[in-house]
């Protein structure tokens, strides 16, 4: 569950602050990393290691991220640091799994990113790794907005329905918005299914205006006052 939350955090972070340039870079490296991981059959481990690195290392030690991002430090230095930190699998007091050596493919990936001077984009790469990983595992991020909070039972029912609809595993994130009045709004990717009362009222109002204007335009005589005043 915790892993899911971390993953969904990175999924939604892009929506909060999209930077298409960095997203594009992230996409390139994510594709390369997952391709390399699939070859050595270590997809899940690589994703897990990447999440752990970002959440447990970079978030916990901001100066370390600053060092990696810095342009003042050469690639050679950074490669040595990466070797020292991740190469022997020993780091800190067990925050990072000291007993397991970091996967060579991941370490190589970090060095390649470093050689291209893109270590400042690690978080963007992680986001894109998750987007692609979800695609591979047929998982779809779904955002459900309701006017009031709903219970777990209803959520599981909704999940089941969505599963049938999209033919994949929904990763549901729930929000509440009282302005919807009733019903629910479901967002899958860029498609919004709006079944809220607020939208229905909005559409009704618009339809009324359109139809009334049409009636007035097409049958003006019907609405004119025969007395002429």
């Amino acid at each position: 569950m915790a892993k899911d939350l971390q993953a969904s955090d990175s999924r939604y972070a892009i929506e909060a602050d999209p930077d298409v340039g960095r997203e594009h870079i992230g996409n390139v490296y994510a594709e390369a990393l997952l391709g390399a991981a699939e070859k050595v059959d270590a997809l899940d481990e690589v994703v897990e290691t990447f999440d752990s690195m970002v959440n447990d290392v970079l978030r916990a030690f901001p100066p370390f991220e600053a060092v990696l991002s810095s342009r003042l430090i050469s690639h050679k230095e950074k490669a040595k640091i990466l070797d020292r930190v991740f190469g022997d699998g020993v780091f800190g007091d067990g925050v990072f799994n000291a007993k397991t050596k970091t996967l060579p493919v991941f370490l190589d990936f970090l060095k390649v990113v470093s050689r291209h001077g893109r270590l400042d984009c690690l978080r963007d790469i992680q986001r894109q790794v998750h987007v692609r990983y979800d695609e591979i595992r047929k998982r779809v991020p779904v955002r459900l907005t309701t006017p009031v909070a709903i219970d777990e039972k209803l959520i599981s029912q909704i999940k089941e329905n969505i599963r049938k609809l999209i033919g994949g595993e929904p990763i549901l994130r729930c929000y509440t918005d009282p302005e919807l009045i009733g019903g629910a709004v479901l967002r899958i990717g860029d498609t919004v299914y709006d079944g809220s009362i607020a939208a229905a009222l909005r559409n009704t109002a618009q339809q009324m205006i359109d139809r009334s204007v049409h009636e007035i335009q097409s049958r003006r005589n019907r609405f004119s006052n025969s007395a002429g005043n």
């Binding site: 967002r187 860029d190 498609t191 919004v192 299914y193 709006d194 079944g195 939208a199 559409n203």
Partner: peptide
């Protein structure tokens, strides 16, 4: 009543 389906962006 119909569910309003739309493709959105920001």
């Amino acid at each position: 009543s119909q569910v309003d389906v739309r493709d959105v962006g920001r």
